[in-house]
């Protein structure tokens, strides 16, 4: 468990979280390399299936990072994404998996330090939870 390095997939909106990740880089802020970023045109594009598929394929944690509520470039994409995240949390509960493995975050493109903080927060949380019970290795 001491050597467990969680694999986390972050679905990031290009208008906020992805730009905040860029800013974090420009600011030379370090954050855990466990987070793999998938850029989206808006978090409204994320689907329940994408989040489940990440879990199914062995991600230990998944999060969606969108604009601050009320600030979505497409008005409601981030609110819709939150509902999808909540659906996936309910699905995980039904399957006996910790719902904390999936989360929704909101931030702006100016919040580089917050992006790094979220990456650390999620990595620490998932490290605490341990490997996903559906990991391919566990399955094999």
């Amino acid at each position: 468990m001491d050597t467990f390095e969680p694999q986390i997939v972050a679905f990031c909106c290009k208008y906020c979280a992805y730009a905040a990740a860029d800013l974090a880089g420009s600011m030379r802020l370090s954050y855990p390399p466990n987070v793999k970023i998938v850029q989206l045109p808006c978090t409204g594009r994320v689907d329940i299936f994408h989040l489940l598929k990440a879990i199914e394929d062995g991600a230990d944690g998944v999060y969606v990072a969108g604009c601050l509520e009320g600030e979505c470039h497409f008005l409601k994409g981030n609110l819709r994404a939150r509902k999808k995240v909540e659906y996936v949390k309910r699905t995980l509960v039904e399957l006996g998996i910790e719902p904390e493995r999936v989360e929704m975050y909101n931030l702006s493109s100016a919040m580089g330090p917050r992006f790094a903080e979220i990456a650390r927060e999620m990595t620490d949380r998932v490290r605490e939870l341990g490997p996903s019970p559906v990991k391919a290795e566990a399955f094999a």
Partner: peptide
């Protein structure tokens, strides 16, 4: 189609969790 995909993924997660295929 989307609901079929979601159900399939959910069932696969459940089975993988039990260590079954």
């Amino acid at each position: 189609l989307k609901e079929v995909q979601v159900l399939a993924s959910s069932l696969k997660i459940a089975r993988k969790k039990e260590g079954k295929s």
